[in-house]
Structures are given as C-alpha cells and as structure tokens.
C-alpha cells in the first residue's frame, strides 16, 4: 500500500512536466499545423539554461528557471521566423526543417558544455511527507509550477483577446485572417508559448534528471505518444493523456522495469488508436 501511494505521488510529478511539454507541442501543431520535432531539444535547452546559470554561474534557481522559459521561448520565435513562416504552406517541410534544427541545437550544446552529463545540485533539500509518501521539495516545485503555468495558459486562452485569436486560428486560420488576425502574430505567440513551456519543463527538472545534450530524444517520443493518445490538437486531451501516461509508465517502471514501461506506453497508444483513431479528445478532423 505504501509503495502504491508513493508511486502515485511520483507519477504526479512525472505527469506535471510531461503535461507542460505535450501542451506546448499541441499548441504549436494546433496554431501552425507543423509538427515540431525539435520540441525535445527545446526541453534540453531549458535544462541547460539551469546548468549554465544556476549550476555554473550560481544565479538563484528560480531566476534560472524563468530565464529558461524566456530564452527557449525566444528560440521558438526565431524558429517561427526562419523556418516555419517560409514553410507555412508546407507542413512536411516544416517537420524536416525542425529535424535539422534539432541537430543544430544538440551540436551547439555539445560544443558549449560537452557530451557528458551536466551535474545540477538540488536547489533545496527539503521534503514533505504526504500520508506516508515522501515528496521532495524539488519535485513539489515542478508540480506547483506546472499547475500554475497551465492555469495561466488556460486563463489566457479563455479570457484574453489574443488567447481567443489563437484558438480561432487553430480552428480555421483563413477565417481568422478575415477577422483581422495576423497569422504571423499568432504563429509567433504559439511558438513562444509552446517553446517556453518545453524550456521551463527542462529547467524545472534539470536538478532531477542530470541533463545530457541527448535527453530530447526520449522526451519527444513520450510527447508524441501523449498527444496521439490525447487527440492531436486538443490541449485538454494533452493534459489528461499526460496524467494517464505518467501513471501507467511510473507504475510499470516501479513494479516491473523501465523497458517494459516504454513498451506498455506504446501499447497504450496503439490501443487508443485502434479504439479511437482521433485520440481520446480529438473529435474533430483538421481541415
């Protein structure tokens, strides 16, 4: 019983950062129609912001995390301007360009920091006991930050004029442009938010995962499984699928092992695709 509860607490932590990553990926796909293969490397870049600013230069952890969000968000804007905008009518071209960009990011980080694992000391030693399960404050911080960021994103999309414009654009870009909504502007916003969320996820988890320049790979695979299970294009679906996937993966890892957990994760995706090809929450077909 204790182990079950402890595993559930661990899964909640995993669900938190996976949700940030998957929501960002869905955001980019929804608004721009492009599959950002470099999304895992944006996570990695966020982690290296913490390696550099916090572990090497001794800036406060929170500041390094905020810098990770903003810096990676800006990298997203650069990607939009240099790759996705010229390739707007060519989603396959956008995908291929993002694969090229992923390799560039990896190589730059290897040049700057080497291929070995970057060591990031914990920013806090504190831990809390929740009904017998141990939750380190480092992990608690990830959970709280993810909830706050996703709530802020939700409020932005539902309540603000620009959030409404983003949703309109994701549903019908041409009709949105006929309302005076600039597709360049919405694409820029979607890229900043999507990349920034991946970056902040990397920054938040850096002390917990010992980043390498190559961690993006497993991240993007996980993120793809989550958005396919959730229904490509559905932000709510991405959050719920992240929770589902994190619980399944964490439980199988704890009670069996990590390789089996990866297999089960893929099997979950296959099962959802067979039963509901549009994913759990993807009711609509994209035009």
């Amino acid at each position: 019983m204790d182990l079950l509860w402890q595993t559930a607490v661990n899964a909640t932590y995993a669900a938190s950062y996976m949700a940030l990553i998957a929501v960002g990926l869905v955001m980019i796909f929804g608004v721009m129609g492009v599959i950002n293969f470099a999304h895992g490397e944006l996570y990695m870049l966020g982690a290296y912001c913490v390696v550099f600013l916090y572990a090497q230069e001794n800036f406060p952890f929170l500041l390094a995390v905020a810098a990770g969000l903003v810096f990676v968000g800006l990298v997203g804007i650069v990607m939009e301007r240099t790759m996705f905008r010229p390739l707007r009518d060519n989603p396959l071209g956008g995908l291929i360009a993002s694969i090229g960009f992923l390799l560039i990011l990896q190589t730059l980080v290897v040049f700057g920091f080497g291929r070995r694992m970057g060591h990031v000391p914990p920013s806090t030693q504190g831990k809390t006991e929740i009904f017998g399960a141990i939750l380190t404050h480092q992990r608690l911080f990830v959970i709280v930050a993810a909830i706050l960021l996703l709530a802020a994103l939700w409020a932005f999309l539902k309540r603000s004029k620009f959030g409404r414009a983003l949703r309109a654009c994701a549903q019908d870009a041409e009709a949105a442009s006929l309302q005076g909504i600039s597709l360049n502007q919405t694409a820029r916003m979607a890229m900043f938010i999507g990349a920034g969320l991946a970056g902040v996820a990397g920054a938040l988890t850096a002390p917990l995962v010992s980043p390498t320049p190559y961690i993006g790979h497993s991240i993007i695979v996980t993120a793809f499984i989550i958005i396919i299970v959730g229904g490509v294009g559905s932000l709510e679906g991405a959050v719920i699928a992240a929770v589902l996937y994190a619980f399944v993966h964490t439980f199988v890892t704890t009670f069996f092992d990590g390789v089996i957990a990866n297999i089960v994760g893929l099997a979950l995706m296959l099962a959802v695709l067979i039963v509901r090809p549009t994913g759990l929450f993807g009711a609509r077909e994209r035009a």
Binding site: K161, R164, A165, R167, A168, Q171, D172, E174, A175, A176, L178, Q179, G180, I181, R284
Partner: peptide, 24 residues
Amino acid sequence: AHVPEGRRVFPDLTVEENLHTGAF
C-alpha cells in the same frame, strides 16, 4: 469585411466569442 463561402464560423468558440473575433 468578408463573410466567406460556407460561413466558416469558429466551431469551438461560443457565439459570443465568435462575434468578438470579428472586432479583433
């Protein structure tokens, strides 16, 4: 202002939200 062929309202926005996009 252009009302396109096939109406092209935003299906997953409410009526009021659709109207507000027009005033973007």
